[in-house]
Design a binder for these strands. Structure first.
Lengths: 196, 196
DNA sequence: TAAAATAAACCGACCGGTCGGTCTATTTTA
DNA sequence: TAAAATAGACCGACCGGTCGGTTTATTTTA
């Protein structure tokens, strides 16, 4: 079997795993659930992954790899820091509108990271990269005098938190606020606080 | 057995349940875990609660009841809205410093609410009350001309999100930012954006 | 001593993971 | 080049063990 066909099988498994973990949680979901969703057999899944945990750990990478090209594009184009930040927010707003599933999954992995070290380490890596990316943009903005002379770490974390807050809307759509409008307003608010 | 002794037994069970759910998650934890931690028997726990789910649902109320007196105190004293908001933030910063366990539990319930309707409803109620409380403060601030004429719902949600962001620090203490310093800075930042 | 509370033995359902075996495609043999 | 051998991909029945919940027996309380 060719490499790409193998990859496709893996995607088939991971796509199923994503749906399953969102609907049933980590311990609450079984390999049989993934088997059913993926339309493969138990044997097939254990052929590609050695354990339930390995499937879900791979799922974290899976979605990070889906994001990183776009994120890198945002940094690499040579626009003002504020435009880049806005691009970042827009990307996640669009992502949320297209398919909020991943945000739901993040909530699951989140609570998982709190009690399982393997997941914590994986998450740590993913978020520290994301954090560094945001901080880079901010440092650039400060150096070019576009931004005020703020604490870049705190600003970066704050932006990360507010992006992640889209998770809220996967649960509560009913506070009379639309997710998109909220995110847009928050973006402007944060930028207003940053820009000189 | 007297009412208060019964209550104490319930607390004993819920305190154990809190520790257990944080360490093992919802489906990942068993009644036997709670039995062990609480130093009671299975029979005793099923005497007070009819199911595992009911124990954990009660746990949500348990912690809300611990918070609400303080929160009500904050609103009832007749201080400027900005002082009240600051009091709110301080309360949660102190809470986090004293014992971040509850923030970890919130992450678990969070992901649970995404897939279980009973937990979603419970959470919905809790958060909409909290949300209303914050919005009330903001409306007051707007009416007294202390705050700018902003969208009170968006502002309230934003404050709620930023309070909850303390959850981050239960996972990642290592971005070179102290939780307290971060929360204090964010408070000032938000207030600066609100105040005229 | 009746009712309330606790303890512990127990049950059927289900779980993660294993394993013997099948099917198909490619490679080796004669 | 036809037959035999090998290897990779895949299947699903099955196993040991755990789980949530029930039942039954015992102790404590009032």
């Amino acid at each position: 079997m060719s490499q790409s066909t193998q990859d496709q099988r893996k995607y088939q498994i991971l796509d199923a795993a994503l749906e399953v973990i969102v609907r049933k949680g980590y311990e609450g979901s079984s390999m049989s659930d993934i088997v059913k969703k993926s339309k493969l057999s138990k044997g097939a899944i254990y052929w590609y992954y050695s354990s339930k945990k390995e499937v879900y750990l791979a799922l974290v990478n899976h979605w990070v790899h889906q994001y990183s090209p776009t994120l890198n594009l945002i940094i690499e184009d040579n626009q003002p820091a504020s435009v880049q930040l806005k691009g970042l927010f827009n990307f996640f707003i669009t992502q949320y509108e297209t398919d909020p599933t991943i945000f739901k999954a993040i909530a699951v992995f989140w609570s998982l990271a709190g009690r399982d070290n393997d997941f914590k380490e994986k998450f740590d890596k993913v978020y520290s990269e994301f954090f560094t990316l945001i901080e880079k943009i901010i440092i650039k903005g400060v150096e070019s005098k576009e931004f005020k002379n703020i604490d870049t770490k705190i600003a970066a974390l704050s932006i990360m938190v507010n992006i992640e807050s889209a998770i809220w809307f996967t649960l509560f759509e009913n506070y009379g606020i639309s997710a998109t409008k909220y995110m847009e307003t928050i973006t402007d608010f944060i930028l207003a606080g940053l820009i000189k």
